[in-house]
Write a protein that binds this DNA or RNA. Structure first.
Length: 646
DNA sequence: GAGCACTGC
């Protein structure tokens, strides 16, 4: 037995399977013992009382602790035990990634000895493992942002813990701003109530006489508590968070980190893949996943090529690019730290020591390099009208804000005075999609092709559906042709989706597992990425529910595909392109010269005019997901944009 | 004639 070792991964070593009842109880008992032992051994365990006191004393607290300190799993339990869930209130813990929310919730439920979804649960898109008895709720930060649309004061929560804040994802950044204002609003409303209460007690007789009113008042008072905010970060520098929350107190928790020896290369490595392979053969490779908190056991060595593939967005050109850039010093430290989680380790940096000195201190937050349309739409829906005046922890550039406002205005989501329009803007904000796709759904109900458009935007919202293995290139190409539509890539995607529907409907009698297995086999045979298609199917059922709730009419255009193509033109008019004499295209909105991506049905047979969905720069500027349209439709269907220009 | 899933609602 591994009892008493205090290690997370050791648990019980007894064979699973044919255990008698007695053995099974013993097994469960020793597992609990191991868990308890492990909890006690965590660095955070010795400071539990102090941490609870800090949270009681301060409304905002910043906790700096490396991964391995136990902050994510233990702090919510400390707070629960200290009575922070009185009155049925919840402790919410946000994570940037789904997998982290799920694994940590499972772990904490186990430690508490409850079934997942009871006292401890999680909620992520497509999966809600919570119930009315849930008090400790793990979730993705994006989901909490959505929740705020329904409950702007987040009144169900007494404490919100924002974990992994150092990652500075756009959801985390927006959430921090929102939480700051929610906290302020809740304190103010509490103060107002307190003042009213004081006045009322001065007039004690009246309060006693009016018993019913007094009770009502008490209820109202109990329902409102200040919001406790805890920001957790693994970066050693807590200054930015502390300054943002008006000098909030920051505490440090020791991590469990073993020494890591760092080795630099002596000369510049030009081919980092080659260099990594060479290093591996001498003994993991650092990718973005190595910087996250998901612990993979058994890592002693880390090879860090010093590069990261990051997405950049140029608001002026509406151009997204995926580029390989040098990492930051903070990223390098995160990567090397990976090697020392379970014992002393080694990190091989495939760059020279003086190159490390040239890296930026920290990574540029995502909010400064992404399209802001979605965020702005959500903030507007939350009542934030003045986007430039919003208290961002780091403000996006003015041009990025202006460009996104302009796009939202052109889509009809904003009124002339920059307020959310009704119903279009409101409806768009309710949908968990890129605003341009939300608008397409609203228009499609008018064009009688919402059924096709729901499938289209679901398929456009996921990573590429088709894949072609190197050894079966010809075969995959032939299969793809069988789905191809002469109108373009959008209807091709609809064909794939409908074929998968037909396949699954024929097997509706099978068990869920057998159906899923058959589905994956079908995907494989058709050179379709089953994970992507599964994801698209999940999105489809979610947004179909959404549009039905909004009262939009879900109808099919049937054989009238022209109607559907016209709707695409009306929706994606900002992304129209005209063929140039030499075969490339000119994007009409920004004048960029672009090429059709080789995955498109129009790669060889190029139409005069088309609309596209993505403009991505890799080694060239490519447009992806295209459908041919009639040039004249643009002035007819989008006069707000084309009539003025021409 | 392109690359590969880093992430989220």
């Amino acid at each position: 037995m591994a009892q008493g070792q205090g290690r997370l991964n050791s648990s019980t070593k007894s064979p699973k399977g044919n255990l008698s009842d007695g053995n099974r109880k013993l097994d469960a008992f020793s597992k609990r013992q191991t868990l308890a032992q492990h909890r006690k051994s965590l660095p955070i365990a010795s400071v539990d009382k102090r941490l609870v006191e800090e949270v009681q004393k301060h409304d905002t607290l910043i906790i700096v602790g490396e991964t391995g300190s136990g902050k994510t799993t233990q702090l919510p339990q400390f707070l629960y035990n200290a009575g922070f869930c009185g009155d049925g209130k919840l402790i919410g813990i946000t994570q940037p990634r789904r997998v982290a929310a799920v694994t940590v919730a499972k772990r904490v439920a186990e430690e508490c000895g409850v079934n997942l979804g009871e006292k401890v649960g999680y909620s992520i898109r497509f999966e809600d493992m919570t119930s009315s008895s849930t008090r400790i709720k793990y979730m993705t930060d994006g989901l909490l942002l959505r929740e705020a649309l329904l409950d702007p004061h987040l009144s169900r929560y007494s404490v919100i813990i924002v974990d992994e804040a150092h990652e500075r994802t756009v959801h985390t950044d927006v959430l921090l701003g929102l939480l700051k204002s929610v906290q302020d609003a809740r304190s103010k409303s509490l103060n107002n109530l307190q003042n009213t209460k004081n006045k009322k007690t001065n007039n004690d007789i009246q309060l006693k006489e009016n018993g019913a009113q007094g009770l009502n008042f008490l209820k109202q008072y109990q329902g409102r508590t200040p919001l406790k905010l805890i920001i957790m970060s693994a970066s050693l520098d807590a200054r930015i968070f502390s300054e943002y929350f008006s000098g909030a107190r920051a505490v440090h928790i020791q991590g469990r980190q073993f020494p890591v020896d760092i080795f630099y290369t002596l000369h510049v490595e030009n081919d980092y893949l080659d260099a990594s392979l060479a290093t591996i053969f001498q003994v993991i490779l650092a990718t973005n996943i190595a910087e996250t908190s998901v612990t993979i056991s058994g890592i002693k060595y880390v090879i860090d090529p010093g590069l990261v593939k990051a997405r950049y967005y140029d608001p002026n050109k509406g151009l997204e690019s995926l580029v390989v850039v040098p990492i930051s010093k903070a990223q390098a430290l995160q990567r090397s730290g990976r090697a020392g989680r379970e014992g002393p380790g080694k990190c091989f940096r495939l760059y020279q020591e003086d190159q490390f000195g040239k890296f930026e201190d920290s990574t540029k937050p995502e909010i400064k390099r992404c399209n802001l349309s979605n965020i702005i739409l959500q903030l507007k829906a939350l009542g934030v009208d003045d986007i430039s005046g919003f208290d961002f922890i780091e403000k996006p550039t003015r041009s990025a804000i202006v460009k996104s406002l302009e796009q939202l205005f052109l889509l009809g989501a904003l009124t002339d005075d920059c307020k959310l329009s009704n119903p279009v803007g409101r409806q768009m904000a309710c949908l968990p999609l890129d605003p341009i796709y939300s608008k397409a759904l609203i228009l499609a109900s008018e064009f009688n092709c919402l059924e096709e458009m729901l499938i289209t935007v679901a398929m456009l919202s996921v990573e590429s559906i088709f894949y072609s293995p190197r050894d079966k290139k010809e075969e995959s190409r032939t299969t793809k042709k069988s789905f191809a539509s002469p109108e373009g890539d959008h209807l091709t995607l609809v064909n794939v989706y409908r074929a998968s529907n037909e396949f699954l409907e024929k097997r509706s009698g099978l068990s869920k597992e057998k159906r899923e297995k058959a589905f994956r086999k079908w995907c494989k045979e058709n050179f379709i990425d089953s994970r992507s298609l599964r994801h698209a199917r999940d999105i489809h059922s979610q947004i179909r529910r959404n549009v039905e709730q909004m009262g939009l009419r879900v109808a099919s255009c049937g054989d009238d595909v022209l109607q559907f193509c016209r709707c695409l033109a009306a929706s994606f008019f900002l992304n129209a392109a005209l063929k140039q004499p030499e075969g490339s295209y000119r994007a009409l909105a920004n004048g960029e010269i672009v090429s059709i991506h080789p995955s498109s049905v129009f790669f060889k047979n190029k139409p005069e005019c088309l609309i596209f969905n993505e403009l991505v720069e890799t080694n060239r500027k490519y447009i992806r997901n295209t459908t041919k349209i009639d040039y004249l439709w643009l002035t007819e269907l989008a006069p707000q944009f084309y009539a003025v220009q021409n």
